[in-house]
Design a protein around this nucleic acid. Structure first.
Length: 217
DNA sequence: ATCCCGAAAT
DNA sequence: ATTTCTGGAT
């Protein structure tokens, strides 16, 4: 199967995921950190704890003012809570400089580089924020993306930027497309393309469009 | 390569 | 009981 058809096949399989990342912009900002190497259910538990003490309108300002150890206690179910509490503090400190005005931040030059300077915000988290919060046409690369490229196309790429360029080369820079594409990749990886792959029931295993000679699963 | 961490998924 | 989770820093 041609790489440029991957999106259509995934979409035909899993349907319309739309924006896929749940929550409003302020919420996505927080969950982008909480979900680092953590399953989504535990992120929901952490957000539930937070919303016992505040509401969506005051979310960012509330977390900014909350002492770090209290924040760590709230987000405990999300794991890595001490590190993530510090990372959220670092992130919120950056946003505080703009009075949490997302529209102003969105207009900043070299926003990706500015996000990457925040300790605890790596390429994947930065790009997730750019794509789902600021709605920039940035493709998010994650471990699932690497796994799927490896298993379906035998592309053993490790470099983040190189993988990102691959998607930019074959797909138009479109926010809706990238938002849904990343979601489709995650959903497919969670359901079938796991570390221990479920190839027997995987769609790609007997996909009529699949013609790669490098099928490894 | 290892640490950070709890909890779901298997 | 063990593995894995919408990573990043050291």
């Amino acid at each position: 199967m041609n790489f440029e058809r991957l999106y259509d096949v995934l979409k035909a399989t899993y349907g319309n995921l739309g924006k896929w990342w749940p929550g409003d912009k302020e919420e996505i900002l927080i969950t982008a950190v909480l979900t680092q190497s953590t399953n989504w259910k535990n992120v929901e538990y952490a957000m539930e704890n937070i919303y016992k003490l505040t509401n969506k309108e005051r979310l960012l300002d509330f977390l900014y003012k909350l002492p770090k150890d209290e924040l760590a206690n709230l987000i405990k179910p999300a794991g890595f809570f001490n590190i993530k509490a510090q990372r959220l503090k670092n992130l919120l400190e950056f946003f505080k400089k703009y009075n949490f005005d997302l529209d102003t931040i969105s207009r900043e030059e070299n926003l990706r580089d500015k996000l990457l300077k925040i300790k605890g915000i790596g390429k994947e988290t930065a790009d997730s924020i750019l794509l789902y919060v600021f709605e920039k046409p940035v493709f998010v690369v994650d471990a699932y993306t690497k796994r799927i490229l490896n298993r379906i196309y035998n592309l053993k790429l490790e470099d983040y930027d190189e993988i990102q360029e691959l998607f930019y080369k074959y797909y138009p820079k479109d926010v809706q497309l990238y938002q849904e594409f990343h979601g489709l990749i995650v959903e497919h990886a969670k359901r079938y393309c796991r570390k221990k792959p479920l190839c027997d029931s995987c769609f790609f295993h007997k996909c009529a469009y699949f013609t790669s000679p490098f099928l490894t699963y």
